[in-house]
């Protein structure tokens, strides 16, 4: 077992346990804390898998943005100091059974798949230039995506993969984000509270 594998198992255990704790914890802010650990662990996995840029974006957007937003949401909607909303025991039992079945389904799906078309050796983890390739692909350069034949494609002869660029999706996502932000600001604008008080 190499050092990288050791690190992978540590981070993977950490991520999985924190994710389970998010489910188990009843206090919503503590759940946010465990979610922080999960997200940080996922970012660590991304770093280990050579996706430095995605890992940093994960830290910046999730931890620096979404989580803060969630905690703000908790604080704006909490009646007491520490909120507890529990599900019933029966609901717990059913959901755990369904969850285990779903996990079994997913695990059996990837265990039964034939992964032999994968390259024997994963690429060098120090592939630092992929960030530049990412940038080029987002700017619309088709050459950033490597040419090759599609593995595992049906048919007699190997199919050439189409080389794609992501300028249009990138622009769509940007405009989408802008629209969403304006919409969220409109929805959450301050209004006089009406309706039932309990």
């Amino acid at each position: 077992m190499s050092f990288a594998d050791f690190l992978f198992w540590i981070v993977a255990l950490w991520t999985g346990l924190s994710a389970v704790m998010v489910v188990v914890t009843q206090n919503i802010v503590r759940a946010a804390l465990w979610l922080l650990f999960t997200l940080a662990g996922t970012a660590g996995l991304f770093f280990l898998l050579g996706a430095d840029f995605v890992g940093a974006v994960q830290l910046l957007v999730y931890v620096g943005g979404i989580l803060i937003l969630l905690v703000f949401g908790v604080m704006l909607t909490a009646q007491g100091p520490f909120v507890n909303l529990r599900a019933g025991a029966g609901e717990w039992a059913v959901s755990i059974v369904v969850g285990l079945l779903l996990l079994g389904l997913l695990v059996s799906a990837f265990l039964m798949t034939d992964w032999r078309f994968l390259p024997a050796q994963p690429p060098d983890p120090a592939h630092s230039r992929y960030v530049n390739d990412l940038g080029l692909a987002l700017l619309g350069s088709r050459d950033a995506t490597p040419p090759g034949t599609l593995p595992g494609a049906p048919g007699p002869e190997p199919a050439e993969r189409s080389r794609v660029a992501y300028l249009l999706p990138f622009e769509i996502v940007s405009v989408h984000l802008l629209v969403v932000l304006i919409g969220a600001a409109y929805l959450a604008r301050a209004r006089r509270r009406r309706g039932a008080r309990t």
Binding site: F46, A51, F53, V54, V57, Q58, V61, Y62, G65, I66, L69, L70, F72, G73, L118, P119, P123, H127, Y130, D133, L134, A137, L138, A144, T145, P146, G148, L150, P151, R161, V164, Y166, P169, V173, H176, L177, V180, L181, G183, A184, A185, L187, A188
Partner: peptide
């Protein structure tokens, strides 16, 4: 898989952006 290096990362990036948008709207 080297062939899908760009695709995988870009999809992950788009998912993160979508998650941010979704969180903003859902919180509103």
């Amino acid at each position: 898989h080297d062939l899908f290096n760009i695709e995988g990362q870009i999809f992950a990036l788009f998912t993160i952006v979508m998650a941010a948008a979704e969180a903003a709207i859902a919180l509103a």
